[in-house]
Simulated assay, not measured.
Amino acid sequence: MKGALLVNLGSPESPDPKDVKPYLDQFLMDRFVIDVPFLLRALLVRGIILRKRPERSAAAYKKIWWDEGSPLIVLSKRMFEKVKKQVDIPMELAMRYGQPTILSGLQKLHDQGVTEVLLFPLYPQHAMASTVTIEVLAEELRAKHFPNMKFTKVPAFYNKPDYIKNLADSIKKQLDTFDYDHLLFSYHGIPERHIRKTDVTKSHCKINGSCCVTPSPAHQFCYRHQCFETTRQVVELLGIPKEKYSETFQSRLAGDKWLEPYTDIEINKMPEKGIKKLVVVTPAFVADCLETLEEIAMEANHQFKEHGGEEFLAIPCLNDSDDWCKTVAGWINDWNKK
């Protein structure tokens, strides 16, 4: 029997520091997130970051927390329930960090007699700290607990026509009601070394002006290329001229060189360039979360206006929109028919 497991990032149980701390520990101690030797990672995370970060992160979570719980969890569940009604196979929802766990999701599918699982990371672009960590953990759990289970992995869908249309339609819906000067595509940042580590050619990814537009097998796993390609296809579909949009990367950690340009720095420069009405979309996420609701819709909005901006619009993620849920269900049903 076939079944599907949808996996998103996850969230603390509450915005209280006592719940945020173990969540951050699980997240930051992931070897695919901070990819340094264990002892160094433990020293960095548990000896330095977790001393102050939980309180700061808890304050941020409190600003966006809903009565129903974490926005990311609530929205993921809403999407899951809509998709579930449109497919004919068992489905479960899991989070890479926090609850519900990947193990619990696989166990529930196993208990229903599922032997073939469509493993579906809910990330449009491929990255070590998102897609890979889900696939590796799921495989470890499968080997240990469900040796007779078989996985089919959903690859990054950054350029799939249905996804591009859903994203473009969601942007157009907002742009039709907003007289904007500029559209910013803000993607989640990753360290540059992650790009080089996922380069299957070991030589193509120079992280310069040409590698991401020069055809290469590296693009199958290159987060930077896939971000740029998502943008290219969306603006082409919407007919947005080059001077009206740009791309940046947000949410960097100190100490490493991350993908540039940085969202916060670029947004703060925009008003002096004559950009007074800014629209920001965050296509690295399919569900609104801390990075979209607090970092962009609140903090970036505030900073933009502090530097002379006048109007700011953060476009919601696809969340549980009917078209997006129909697309996800369609992909699952197509796989089920094979």
Rank of each mutant, 00 (worst) to 15 (best):
L5M: 10
L9G: 05
P12T: 08
E13R: 13
D25C: 06
Q26V: 05
F27I: 08
M29L: 15
D30F: 03
L43T: 14
G47I: 10
I48H: 11
I49K: 07
P54V: 06
Y61P: 09
K62H: 08
K62N: 14
W65T: 14
W66C: 09
D67N: 13
S70I: 02
S70C: 12
L72M: 15
V74P: 05
L75G: 07
F80I: 12
K84D: 12
K85R: 15
D88Q: 13
I89W: 00
M91P: 15
M91R: 10
A94D: 06
R96G: 14
P100W: 00
I102G: 03
L106D: 11
L109P: 06
D111Y: 00
E116Q: 12
L119V: 07
P121H: 06
L122A: 09
A127M: 02
A129V: 11
T131H: 07
V132K: 11
E135K: 08
E140R: 14
H145W: 06
N148I: 04
N148W: 00
K150A: 13
F151Y: 10
F157S: 05
Y158P: 06
P161K: 07
A168V: 08
I171V: 13
I171S: 03
K173A: 15
F178S: 05
D181K: 07
L183Y: 01
G189F: 01
R193C: 04
R196E: 01
T198W: 01
K202I: 00
S210R: 01
R224T: 01
R224M: 02
H225C: 05
T231V: 09
R232K: 15
K242V: 15
K244N: 12
Y245M: 08
R252I: 08
L253I: 09
L253N: 06
L259Y: 00
T263C: 04
D264Q: 12
I267L: 13
N268H: 07
M270C: 10
P271T: 02
E272A: 15
L278M: 08
P283C: 01
A284P: 09
D288V: 04
C289N: 11
I296E: 11
A300W: 03
A300K: 12
A300I: 07
P316T: 01
C317Q: 10
C317I: 04
D322T: 13
T327K: 10
N333P: 13
D334Q: 10
W335I: 09
K338Y: 04
K338R: 13
